[in-house]
Write a protein that binds this DNA or RNA. Structure first.
Lengths: 345, 345
DNA sequence: ATGAAAGCGCTAACAG
DNA sequence: CTGTTAGCGCTTTCAT
């Protein structure tokens, strides 16, 4: 064959020839084997540098039987929250010999093919799944996968055997509601995602659960008028909020399951000329970048840390698959800014 | 050797044995070679499926002498604008057999090592450089690189030989200033990045150039009081704006070289209780996602399209390195929202 | 301490 | 149409 090989690159054999040693020795030098005479090592290194030789990673991978790659499977990776997690992943991985392959998932079909095939077809050494609950039918395959898999920000009862990195959405929702209740609010609305998201996201549902817990604890009865859900998005949240705020007895505070949706609520208030926070308190979730600009009170998740923790767990497990299973919890934090205030009526 | 090979994977030889053919034939089947009998093809496919065989890409790469990977070198990839470009890249690449390796650059040192080494050490088949002007000393290496390199959003006089995808920042700046001038503004401020950015970004400078052109064309003299620069960032832009707006004769409009900086200007106006747009018009650049929420008038760059165009050029050149050099221009567009208005005085 | 040689899984030239 | 074979560049036993 005549491979379209990257042309003029010297190979390990060239180095060996120039240094008057065997390829094996050069390999040993490259891998810092202790069993090579100091003078030889020197000579080899000199040749390596004069030839500007760099090992071919692909050959190395094949020979080692390792791909030196990890895959990250992430939905809508341009969303602010996912990007921040990814940054944690990318930056941490930059110090290692591992490559990152990003699989962006935007439909259930994509998830199906990627989750099912990646561990096999792509020959990766590890997989990081972010924010993406697996479908039931793939669970068995995942459990018997030959490569380690770590889940970040996915809550699923069947993941008891995997390393996990999670924020506590239930607790986050509780913190948000608690804050409003402590301020004196009793009529509190919730705006979140539909519970049956095609990709099965659970965060909105869990945040709502925490929210309800806090209300129950404060003996505030659940009122379905104060509960609205739609497909994720700022504009739809705005519609829901406008409806809720024109109720005969509107809420004095609204908890949005994400900052994006909180922005929709802010717009609704502006349209209806309801002063925030004087007549309406608003709290979001995530603490995405604009939240600070908007002065939005919110629940912060340390997204960068969660991405970083995910790779760390994965790399450790790749080194030793038998270590005990770990669950890392990334704590949420209430960030009080200027959209929450005691109720006015 | 005893490679930690991905354990139980069948190889091409297993398939061959089970199908009673040679590995070569299996390879031909896999690669859709026309020179294989239909019945054989069928039989081989059956075995492939029953064995759940999938080819080892690493071996394939080594044998082909191609890495089937492309590298993208991008600064601060979490910035909204870069993310959007990346999405164009990732989504377009998902349909191909190529992997993406992301190199996030945040310092000149990182750029130096990555730009210099990637084409060699990493064995990639192509490189996409986003928003990152090369340092002079690396230009020769880039020009003689063995792999195709495409630059997206980098303006540099020495890039005459490369495929390029660019927005026209000068024209964008012109459009922005022109819009303000057409509204009747004469005292127009500019807030942008420092011209000597360590990574050599040129966009702010070019936008300013277009801005000045428009002013000159309208016979508005340049006033250095209305010109302020600092390190990129919302808060610093806010400081500059506050200073500019408390001048004895403050500008009636401000052009910020990015939406992020425009947000700083908005904050400054709010602090100083200057009504926008009645007493102060503000126009930004980029049309990042929040711009719409804020009602910010801005210059839109079609970022997704630029990322996509970048990979397309790259893939085409990888197929045929001898095609004529191309320059794709992604047009800017003035998006008028509610932060610009005729001057009030 | 070093060389020789086999092998990772695949492709492609060559022969038939 | 198909089998055989060499080889991609590297690592790692096994000898010496």
């Amino acid at each position: 064959m005549k491979p379209v090989t990257n042309s003029s690159h010297p190979t390990i054999r060239d180095v060996a020839r120039h240094a008057g040693v065997s390829p094996g020795t050069v390999s040993r030098v490259l891998n810092n084997s202790p069993l090579v005479k100091e003078t030889t090592r020197q000579r080899v290194w000199e040749v390596i540098e004069s030839l500007n030789y760099t090992p071919n990673l692909i050959a190395r991978r094949l020979s080692l039987g390792k791909s030196l790659r990890i895959a990250v499977i992430v939905p809508f990776f341009t969303r602010p929250a996912e990007v921040e997690r990814l940054r944690g992943v990318v930056n941490h991985l930059a110090h290692t010999q591992y490559d990152l392959v990003i699989h962006n998932i935007e439909t259930p079909e994509q998830r199906a093919t990627d989750l099912a095939q990646i561990p096999y077809r792509e020959w990766v050494d590890g997989v990081l799944v972010i924010s993406l609950p697996p479908e039931e039918e793939f669970l068995p395959r995942l459990k018997t996968a030959e490569v380690p898999i770590v889940f970040v920000d996915v809550h699923h009862p069947e993941l008891r055997d995997f390393d996990l990195v999670n924020g506590d959405d239930v607790r986050g929702g509780y913190l948000a509601a608690r804050h409003l209740i402590d301020l004196g609010h009793r009529r509190i609305g919730f705006i979140g995602d539909l519970p049956d998201h095609p990709l099965g996201f659970t965060s909105s549902r869990d945040r709502f659960e925490g929210f309800r817990n806090a209300l129950a604890e404060a003996n505030i009865p659940y009122d379905s008028n104060y509960h609205a859900e739609s497909v994720h998005g700022q504009y739809l949240a705005q519609m829901l909020a406008e409806k809720m705020l024109t109720l005969p007895s509107p809420p004095t505070a609204i908890f949005a399951a994400s900052d994006t949706q909180a922005m929709g609520v802010l717009t609704a208030a502006r349209h209806l000329r309801i002063p925030v926070p004087e007549h309406l308190s608003i709290i979001g979730f995530d603490d995405i970048q604009v939240a600070e600009y908007l002065g939005l009170t919110t629940i912060r998740q340390n997204l960068y840390a969660s991405g970083k923790a995910g790779v760390e767990l994965l790399l450790e497990r790749m080194i030793d698959p038998k270590i005990e299973r770990r669950v890392v919890e990334i704590p949420n934090e209430l960030i009080i800014r200027s959209t929450t205030f005691p109720p006015n009526s």
